[in-house]
Simulated assay, not measured.
Amino acid sequence: MRIIIRYFFRTLRLVLTPFMLLNEKLSTPKSMTRTPDEQARADLASKQLALYQFSACPFCIKVRKEIARLGLNIETRDAQHDQQHRSDLEAGGGHIKVPCLRIKREDGSEQWLYESGDIKAWLQKRFETA
């Protein structure tokens, strides 16, 4: 019975994934406008960030939409299909859970921020202009 349930959910994921990705593409908001200097500062700060994610994860989609809305160029790392990124996430963050934002600080230390709501709040506090 357990194997039937497992295959049912795998099949359901395979069927729903294209629709979730299409919905993300169609509903992603336009990015906020910044002056060229502000955008350059945001791009520089974004280089210190990396989002570990799965492509069809609804919580990851939520974070990617916020990244697009804020007009950020944050590297996304596929922790589902890329074994190196998966290993880095487990070694740095402590466990394999997405979405996870890796924040590299100026002193060289790293912070691993989990939970889509926390990531969105941190990005808004850090990058949203008043």
Rank of each mutant, 00 (worst) to 15 (best):
D107P: 11
D88R: 12
G92F: 00
T76F: 07
K97H: 06
C100Y: 06
G94M: 03
Q83L: 10
L101A: 03
Q111E: 12
I96V: 14
G92C: 03
P99F: 07
H81L: 09
D88M: 11
C100S: 08
Q111P: 04
E110K: 14
I67G: 02
H95G: 07
E90V: 14
A68D: 07
R102Q: 15
I96L: 12
G71V: 02
D107S: 12
I74G: 05
A79L: 07
D82V: 15
V98R: 05
K97E: 03
E75F: 06
L70R: 07
E66F: 00
H95V: 02
S87D: 15
E66V: 04
G94P: 01
K104E: 14
P99N: 07
V98I: 10
D107H: 10
R105T: 05
I67N: 06
I103R: 08
G94K: 09
R77L: 15
E75D: 06
D107A: 12
R105W: 02
D82H: 11
A79E: 01
S87H: 13
L72R: 02
E110W: 08
D78I: 06
L70M: 09
R86K: 14
D78K: 08
S87E: 15
I74W: 01
S87T: 14
L101E: 04
Q111G: 11
D107Y: 13
A91V: 10
G92D: 03
R69S: 08
D82E: 09
L70A: 02
Q111S: 13
D82S: 09
P99K: 12
C100P: 09
I67A: 05
G108K: 10
S109F: 08
Q83S: 14
I103E: 10
T76S: 13
D88F: 06
D78W: 02
R105L: 11
I74P: 02
K65C: 01
E75K: 15
A68N: 06
I103F: 09
K97W: 00
A79R: 05
R105C: 15
